[in-house]
Structures are given as C-alpha cells and as structure tokens.
Amino acid sequence: MPGPLPPALHAIDLDSIDGTVSIWLGPVGGPPVFTRDAEVTHYAASTMKVAVLVALHRAAERGDLALDDEIVVDNEFVSVLPGAGPFSIDPTDDNDEQVTGRMGETATLGWLGERMIVRSSNLATNLLIGVLGTDAVNAVWRDVGARHSRTDRGIEDVRARETGVTNLVTAADLAALLSAIADGTAASPASCAAILGILEAQEYREDIPAGLPPGTRVACKNGWVPNIRHGAAVIYPVHSPAYILVVCTTTTLEESAGADLVARIAAATFPE
C-alpha cells in the first residue's frame, strides 16, 4: 500500500488548491510509495505523446515501417469522427518551428518522433498518429497495464472533441508507461533505451526538472493547456535508485503557477 505523505510535501497545502492534484511516486516497476488521486483521469495534453513514441518504435520493430521512412509534412488531417471532414492545427501555435518550417517538404518518421517530444510539436504528433492510427497508441496503454488512459484523437480534432472524443491519462497510468520504458519492456530494450534518450533531451523544463538539483538526470514529458499542467518523469539521483514521479494537475492555476506547483512537488519528493 502507498505510504504516508512525504514529510517535505507537508509544506505544500495541496488541499487548498482549487482542483485536482494527482501524484504517483515510487520506484521503477512499482509499487508506489505515495499516491494522491492517482487513478483520477485528466485531459492528457501532451503527455500522451510518450505513448505515440512507443507505438512508433514498436511499428519499426515489426517491420511495418522504418524510422528513416520519409513522409510529407502536411497540415491536413482526417478527423476520427466519421463525416467530420479534415482539420488542421494553427502552425503559429505549434512549439517547433523546425517542423512547421518543413511544410510541403519531407521528414523522417524518427525525426518527427524526436521533435514531438523534445519540442512537443503538435504537428509532428498528428503526422505520426496519421501513420500509426489511434489503435496502435491505445495498444501501448493496454500493454503497460494502464487502466484508464486513452488516445482517441489527434490534437485539435475539434469536431471529435465536441462529441466527447478525447485523450485521457491518469498519474498511475503514466507511471506504468514510464516504468515499462525504463525497465525495457514497453518495446524492445534497444527501442526503450532510444526512447529514454529522447525523453532526456526534452527542452521544456519548467516543471519537474526545475524542482530537481541542477544536473540531475531526468527523462520526462510534460503537458499543458489552460488550467492543466502535468509532468511525468524517470528521475535518476546520483546516490539513490531511479524512481518515477508523475504529477497531473487540473486546477484554476495559471500556466506559470501550475508549473511552479509541479516543480515544488518534485523538489519535495527528491531524496536527500
């Protein structure tokens, strides 16, 4: 069973926050040493991109595609809602000018997978979901033991979203996914090692990494939209075993305050 509240977390009054703060903390492979609302679903934001990356590497392992296969960088996608017609994202709102700058040109699937994580490119994500399909991504969730998480549509598939088709995660499910990557079972050991390397190259570091001592090795993915800030990480302290920390927040906090909250939780759970 999960243990008591880590002592340093007592300084953070989580109960006073308007909304839901979910936490899963524990060793790679579990069981958790502390949880808080870890089975509560949250809108996934960009954390679901980790499952897309695993699905991509699995497809390459099966021989369904190769990571150096090239596709055209287009911004028109087929909605998962039958008859809804095509949709696109706002390229000025994407996080990665390297991807949007290749519009009309080609890019490799492997490169798109990297940009989807290190710069959280929504365009790269939709391109890969278009190649893989949501069923392949949801198979990743099922195989790692996720109970509630689903990736059922691309980003900004507004017509599907309006009918309730969405992408969900829980802190516990993200922990299961990261544990399976860290222990080399989410895909082949070689693929998992490559995925960890991509997660370590994540450039958005305002939440969990910001709460860790400088230079701490961390493989992470975060996600944010208004009033939502999530961080999911494999953390490698120098003098302690690696562990998993996932924080999912759906609150009334603004973006910077949400990121700061996740960073403070990370700092409070880091072993001394």
Rank of each mutant, 00 (worst) to 15 (best):
L178I: 00
V118T: 12
P237N: 09
D143G: 04
E203P: 00
R62C: 05
R153C: 08
V118Q: 02
L261M: 09
R58N: 06
I155Q: 10
T20S: 11
S22D: 01
F87W: 04
G63E: 07
C220Q: 15
P6K: 01
A259E: 15
N222Q: 10
R161F: 15
E61N: 10
G63I: 03
M48D: 11
L123W: 07
A259D: 13
V33A: 12
E200N: 11
E61M: 07
R147Q: 14
G26L: 10
R102T: 09
T125L: 10
T250A: 13
T125H: 11
A8Y: 06
I195Y: 12
A259C: 14
A136E: 08
I235L: 06
T166W: 02
A66S: 14
S16M: 08
A60H: 07
A233G: 03
R115C: 04
I244L: 08
T134D: 02
T170D: 06
P27M: 04
Y236P: 00
I117S: 02
G30L: 11
A66T: 13
T252E: 14
P226A: 10
I12S: 12
C248A: 13
L25E: 02
G63S: 06
A139I: 00
N122F: 10
S240E: 13
A124K: 09
P213D: 00
E97W: 12
L14Q: 08
K49P: 09
A187F: 13
N167P: 13
I181T: 03
H57R: 13
S46I: 04
P7E: 09
T100Q: 10
S149G: 08
G19K: 09
T108P: 10
P86T: 09
D152V: 09
S149R: 08
C248Q: 12
V247L: 02
A233H: 03
D93K: 12
T249E: 11
I181L: 04
L25C: 05
P214Q: 06
G258C: 04
N122K: 10
T35I: 11
E114Y: 05
Y43E: 14
S22E: 01
V50C: 10
L168V: 13
A139S: 02
I117A: 04
R153W: 05
T163V: 15
P189I: 05
L14D: 06
E70R: 13
A180T: 02
A60E: 08
S120E: 00
A257I: 01
A180D: 01
T185P: 03
G83R: 05
V144K: 06
P2H: 07
P4C: 01
A139L: 01
T216K: 04
T151F: 13
V247P: 00
L109E: 08
H148R: 14
T47L: 15
E203W: 00
D96T: 05
T269L: 11
L56W: 13
L199M: 15
D74E: 15
G130Y: 02
V73E: 05
W224R: 14
V40N: 05
S46T: 07
G184I: 04
R142L: 03
G154D: 02
R150G: 08
G258R: 08
S179G: 12
W141R: 00
L109Y: 06
L109T: 07
V158R: 13
P86L: 05
H10N: 12
